[in-house]
Amino acid sequence: MKKTKILNQQQVYHKAKRIAFQIYEDHSNENQLVLAGIAKSGFKFAELLKTYLEEISPIQVELCEVHINKKNPLNSDHSDLQVSSYKNKSVVIVDDVLNSGATLIYAVKKFLEVPLKQLKTAVLVDRSHKKFPVKADYKGLSLSTSLNEMIQVSFDPEVQVDLY
Rank of each mutant, 00 (worst) to 15 (best):
K130E: 09
H14D: 12
Y24A: 03
I6S: 06
I151S: 01
I59L: 06
P133W: 04
Y106Q: 06
K70R: 15
A16D: 03
V159G: 09
S100L: 09
K89F: 11
Y24S: 03
L141F: 05
I59H: 05
V94R: 04
K5E: 15
H27W: 08
E55P: 07
A36S: 08
V97I: 04
P115K: 10
K131T: 08
E113N: 12
D80V: 04
Q152I: 10
L74M: 11
E54V: 09
S128C: 10
I6K: 06
P115Q: 10
V92W: 05
I68F: 03
N29L: 14
M1A: 13
A20Y: 00
Q160G: 11
D156H: 13
E25R: 11
S41D: 12
G37P: 08
E62C: 10
I6V: 10
L33K: 00
F111R: 01
K110C: 05
T145S: 05
V125F: 04
K17Q: 15
V153H: 04
K70M: 13
S154E: 13
A20L: 01
V108L: 15
L112D: 05
Y86E: 09
F45C: 06
G101D: 04
M1D: 08
S76T: 05
N148C: 09
L98W: 00
S41V: 09
S76A: 07
I56Y: 10
V159Y: 12
L163I: 08
V12A: 06
V92P: 06
A46L: 03
L49S: 02
S90M: 00
K3D: 07
T103H: 05
L63N: 04
S142T: 13
N88C: 03
E149Q: 05
K2I: 13
L35S: 04
A136Y: 03
P58F: 10
A122P: 02
I56N: 08
N31H: 13
H78A: 08
L7Y: 01
N148K: 14
S28C: 12
N69Q: 04
Y24P: 02
K109G: 09
S28N: 11
I38A: 01
I23F: 00
Q22P: 07
N31E: 14
N31S: 14
D80K: 06
V61H: 02
D95Q: 06
F21P: 06
G140P: 00
V134Y: 02
A122D: 02
Q160A: 15
M150V: 12
L124A: 03
K117W: 09
E30I: 04
L112T: 07
T145C: 05
S128Q: 14
S142I: 10
V34Y: 05
H67T: 12
V114F: 11
I23N: 00
D162W: 15
G140Y: 01
T103F: 05
D80M: 03
L7W: 02
A136D: 02
V34E: 06
A107R: 04
S79T: 15
V83D: 15
M150S: 12
